[in-house]
Amino acid sequence: MTAQSPILEVKDLETQFHTQDGTVHAVNGVSFDLNSGEFLGVVGESGSGKSVTMMSLLRLIPMPPGKIVAGQAMFEGRDLLTLELEDLRTVRGGRIGFIFQDPLTSLNPVLTIGFQIMESLHIHTKLSDEKREARAIELLQLVGIPGAKKRLESYPHELSGGMRQRVMIAMSLACSPRVIIADEPTTALDVTIQAQIIEIIRDLREKLGTAVIWITHDLGVIAGLADRVLVMYGGLIVEEAPVGELYANPQHPYTEGLLGSIPRLDQKGMQLINIKGQPPSLYQKPDSCPFAPRCPYVFDRCREENPPLLEVKMGHSTACWWDMDNQRPRYGS
């Protein structure tokens, strides 16, 4: 990849939920960039803060109990986290589109597909009624929904799961956004439908040049799609690398665990295998490495200090005190 200017720069994002049981530290200082047109994969076990991170960017988390405590998210020269709500709304759906996990619950059951697609156009564009309808039909065709014109009148429950997710995709594309954030868009679907949806996104991205952030817990999905991957654990990014590099040469024990303890790229169908132990409690802010209790390479320093995310090779960063390549502590400790 040639050096590109990032269109989204996230710095030190921290999000907490103040619940009755205590403060949930869901995101604990996440920083990453997204280049224009880039396909960024985000992986991690469920509960690692992937959704909260991305939803925090557009302030879509429920507030309260949620609170964005710190951070910056620069997009087109403005900080999304401090932007006036009015201006943020022009970004939501206009410049950044969102696709959610469960297309059945994410679509309004009592409004027609057409209404829900055209609603975006209504807010963000000055198109006339006929033009809006024409655009909605065009979008439905783009995501491969047959009989698009008739479908405008349908309600979500009249479509299959895959068709509904296509509608969600069409909706997020309505105003030609620069970035699409897809939060596990295929998790709720059958495997064959999953493949179709992935194909559609891949096509659209080539056609439209939109940058995509694809959240998943399935490393197999990401392998063929992403340019770069972020690995999240306990509300932190623990590793970041170009996709081939990450698979060939994981630099964090957690990633290694995700890939199946010894990474073998020749092995087909890499899948998330269970890593022994519990995900970390998010009720305290991590002051040591959150992965330490489950880590096969753990040593004293891991329990004393939380390792920062640092670049260990060109474009490859990890947050780990252990040097996996040389099997010894990193940074001279």
Binding site: M55, L58, L60, R89, T90, V91, R92, G93, G94, G97, F98, F100, D102, T105, S106, L107, N108, P109, L111, E119, S120, I123, H124, M168, M171
Partner: peptide
Amino acid sequence: EDYVRTARSKGLGETMVVTTH
């Protein structure tokens, strides 16, 4: 409900979110 979050993610104002959705 999730669809309320979707409505917000499309850029709808709160009044619209509450009244139409």
